[in-house]
Design a binder for these strands. Sequence first.
DNA 1: GATGAATGAGGATTCATTCAT
DNA 2: TATGAATGAATCCTCATTCAT
Lengths: 203, 203, 203, 203
Amino acid sequence: MSSKVPAEPRKREKYMAIIDAALEAFAEYGYHNCQVAKIARQAGIADGTIYLYFANKEDVLVSVYREKMNEFMTQLKALLQLHTSALEKLSVLVNFHFNHLEKNPSLANFIQIQLRQSDASIRLGIAEPLKQYYQLIETLIDEGKEQGIFNPQIRTKVAREVIFGSMDEIVSCWVFSSKKYSLSKNVDDVLTILKSGLTVYQS
Amino acid sequence: MSSKVPAEPRKREKYMAIIDAALEAFAEYGYHNCQVAKIARQAGIADGTIYLYFANKEDVLVSVYREKMNEFMTQLKALLQLHTSALEKLSVLVNFHFNHLEKNPSLANFIQIQLRQSDASIRLGIAEPLKQYYQLIETLIDEGKEQGIFNPQIRTKVAREVIFGSMDEIVSCWVFSSKKYSLSKNVDDVLTILKSGLTVYQS
Amino acid sequence: MSSKVPAEPRKREKYMAIIDAALEAFAEYGYHNCQVAKIARQAGIADGTIYLYFANKEDVLVSVYREKMNEFMTQLKALLQLHTSALEKLSVLVNFHFNHLEKNPSLANFIQIQLRQSDASIRLGIAEPLKQYYQLIETLIDEGKEQGIFNPQIRTKVAREVIFGSMDEIVSCWVFSSKKYSLSKNVDDVLTILKSGLTVYQS
Amino acid sequence: MSSKVPAEPRKREKYMAIIDAALEAFAEYGYHNCQVAKIARQAGIADGTIYLYFANKEDVLVSVYREKMNEFMTQLKALLQLHTSALEKLSVLVNFHFNHLEKNPSLANFIQIQLRQSDASIRLGIAEPLKQYYQLIETLIDEGKEQGIFNPQIRTKVAREVIFGSMDEIVSCWVFSSKKYSLSKNVDDVLTILKSGLTVYQS
DNA sequence: GATGAATGAGGATTCATTCAT
DNA sequence: TATGAATGAATCCTCATTCAT
């Protein structure tokens, strides 16, 4: 029922072109107000062509998230690899999260607004890529605990929810403010809170 | 364009009956899959009657949030009044946020899922009640700073985003887990993080 | 899933008006080439109103057949009641079959052409009313056998197939000829064949 | 607009392969539910190739009928040639009609169901091959009249309609019964009816 | 000749909203 | 006030057909 990234280069190219067009179209018009025809026009193809690459409109939405999240995760993992300290990694994570969305305003709008659809099937399609991000954060927290930096009394899942929830809310407020200020300027304050919130009290 | 709470008691009664019916209906079917006819049936009235009390379907959604948020804020303020310490108040806030939604599952579903619509006009209607909650939290933070408890270096807005974002994410994960565990059991961990995250280092 | 004739007079009136409009529209444009909008226009109502009375376009087609077949059967039964001889009844049947369709050209077109859709669900919806006609003919044949008029060696079902098949083919040819000749003029020849074909040889 | 059987052997071979594939595909899925792509897949060729041999989907349907009817007529004529008595010929005809369709279930499904489309152009394309069968039957009847066997008072056309209509209805009922019984077992009864129905009373 | 990716016209159906009663 | 029958705009998706390769 759902699409997969085509293996053949030529097909993959058009597949990604539709993904990018859809991202822009969704960000501009909003999911429910963005007709398939608008995506097609943005991609410079016929309406029907969309359905050679995607099962339906919902599948386009979910696929945009999956593809963009893949890119996000790949880049983030590469950066995290350069560090060992959980504290440094946390800093890298928050910085990257903010920087990436600040550099990709349509993606920010898409993730913070368009993606929040109440349709159960959309929720389901989003769950998997999101889960991977969740797990990456939880791994980071567990590493911090092993390194004796993070408070082992705090359950990892709650810590992850605080970290992700904080970043998510900050980005949301930024998006709803029409991005009038720099998102990254929040990094220091968030990190201050999160670091002292998660670390063991060091006398 | 938007409705107001009717002053006359009889009208107000039916108005609130529709609000409650809509909350249940939205929670059960989801906003887009919940026809106005379903709200009317749940309220035991005719479809057309809804439009004597609300401008349109969007207005019903926004009004549900406004009314329920009013109740929420009234109760929360009453509780906070009993305390002066910002730390205690933070504890009261988090406890109340979790307890209230745990006791009102339909409201939890409504707020975490149905409310997240991408329609600009809905976003706008939600903004005002939400802003009041934001301000209440920010006031609490400022009090903490004045009391010398909270770190004055952290901008109040960011602190509020961390507090609200953490709670919001925790409730969301709970709702999406089909509420299989107790929401309140997260209170201690969150408070641990938030308190040590926000307070000044005390040697 | 399928519609039922409304009991309330006012609703029944509009229901029948749609049935009649659909009969004309189907006969004029053909089922697949007859948009729901054309039925609505013919009935002088809005497109959506059709769906207050019928589940879908298919249901309209099937209901037209059911209603028209009901009328047909009611009238036919009333006529048959006036006779006891199976031979006379056969004559009444064939005469009525031809006369009725000759007087209702749209119905003839509808039954001989539009109704012959390959969709399985349509076939299914048509089956029941058609079966009643089949059974009426078979009852007539069995009476003839009991009266010692019809050949008891011939299986009733085959006899029915010959009677119905003959009439059906004659009406079809007449419809496809654009009804350029009188359908009823075939009555005598058909009856001659059927009567001597079915009766016992009387030396 | 319509296709012709290619003269060149190689082309004719693929032409017939498509015909056979289409027969199976139409019988399996039904005309409207059978996409051109399904015919192509069944034939093991590309979608576009169909259009090198046929004008359009309708043309495929009509051509299937034309080709299969040609085979049918060729075989039937060869059999009839072996007899001179109209009564014998009638017997051969009915036997062959039933046997042929019983041996070719897809063809039976195709003729009794898929072919009955309301599209005027399809009806037109079918008319010619069907007319030839009609004429063959009428010739047989006229021979019977000349031989003093068949009742000359009965108009030939009506007699043909009874013969064809009877056979057609019997096959239809058999197809709709999912071919659960032997079609041929009806031969004797039909012939009994038709023979005594058409022959002159012989004292 | 053969392919199959691309096209884009076409339509049944839903449902928020209205308004005559 | 309340009703609920009627409205009609709005759109995703299919699939026969084309044509560049």
